[in-house]
């Protein structure tokens, strides 16, 4: 993993406020999303983050942060 499980959880949580306000921002450039479309965009972003997080590290990435110790 490229990020600790706890770090991943926090990153996903931080996605919530961004998604909630994404519609407002997009409406400024005249892109109006429905709730369903926002949910789809959100799900897509979650998948992208998960894929990135679970990709094996190819040596150049940092080691997972210290607190990636055993989950209880």
């Amino acid at each position: 993993m490229r990020i600790s499980k706890a770090g991943l959880l926090v990153v996903l949580a931080l996605l919530a406020p961004l998604l909630v306000e994404l519609r407002t921002v997009l409406s400024w450039v005249n892109v109006e999303l429905t709730v369903l479309e926002t949910a789809v965009v959100g799900a897509a972003l979650v998948v992208v983050i998960l894929v990135w997080a679970f990709l094996p590290e190819n040596g150049d990435g940092k080691t997972a942060e210290g607190d990636a110790s055993s989950e209880n």
Binding site: S4, A6, E65, D67
Partner: peptide, 11 residues
């Protein structure tokens, strides 16, 4: 990223 996100007290 080096912060102790695993620790609920911190997070």
């Amino acid at each position: 990223t080096a912060l102790p996100w695993r620790d609920p007290v911190f997070t």
